[in-house]
């Protein structure tokens, strides 16, 4: 565990707390892509199956359980409790376009052709693109609530911090995982446009409106 890794995990944790608080306090999931949330739930459930096979640390297990349970809770809030506020007209990204290639890639390029490893790899690839329905939704409506943009910023920052963690681990532990690194870089690059808008607008107290 290094400082980048810890900061990344905390940023990830904060993103999820912001999202749940936004939905709970405003009693609304307007502006949130249910499709991205389904993909994230799929990411966590397929990656953290190792909870049942090997124990790493209490920190590790607690975080994994947290990510799985909060992603299921988010889906419950969006599709059951606050269903009426779900903006499905703007949430139209076809997730099959992501799921099919990611499944094929997971089957072809993995560390080990075993169910657990293929699912782990699938999860890494899927996570890198899971935000696309959400970014598509923001670009379609042309804006995002400030709280939603804080959520997106923390979620994007988490993987960017992991890149520094991987650089650190490469130099100090001689460890690197090419699958995670390539997917993590792709994931971070997808947020770049959003990061630019966040820094130039939201930080200065303006709403996140996309240029026409």
């Amino acid at each position: 565990m290094n400082v980048f890794r810890l900061a990344g995990d905390l940023s990830h944790l904060l993103a999820i707390i912001i999202l749940l608080l936004k939905i709970w306090k405003t009693r609304s999931c307007a502006g949130i892509s249910g499709r991205s949330q389904i993909l994230f739930a799929l990411v966590y459930t397929t990656r953290y199956l190792d909870l049942f096979t090997n124990f790493i640390s209490l920190y590790n297990s607690v975080m994994k359980v947290f990510f799985i349970s909060t992603s299921c809770a988010t889906i419950y809030l969006m599709y059951v409790k606050f269903k009426a506020t779900y903006d499905h007209n703007h949430d139209t990204f076809r997730i099959g376009f992501l799921l099919i290639p990611v499944t094929i890639l997971g089957l072809l390029i993995n560390h080990d052709f075993t169910p657990l490893e293929v699912l782990w790899t699938f999860s890494i690839y899927l996570e890198s693109v899971a935000i696309l329905p959400q970014l598509f939704m923001v670009s379609k409506t042309g804006d995002a609530e400030t709280i939603t943009s804080h959520y997106l910023f923390c979620l994007g920052l988490y993987r960017a911090l992991y890149i520094f963690n991987w650089i650190y681990r490469y130099y100090f532990e001689g460890f690197y995982d090419l699958i995670a690194i390539v997917a993590g870089v792709v994931q971070t690059v997808l947020y770049c446009d959003f990061f630019y808008l966040y820094v130039t607008r939201v930080i200065k107290g303006k709403a996140l409106k996309l240029p026409a």
């Binding site: 590790n60 782990w120 532990e173």
Partner: peptide, 10 residues
Amino acid sequence: GEALMRHDEL
């Protein structure tokens, strides 16, 4: 081993 190092990350 290496798999454990990967699975340590979240």
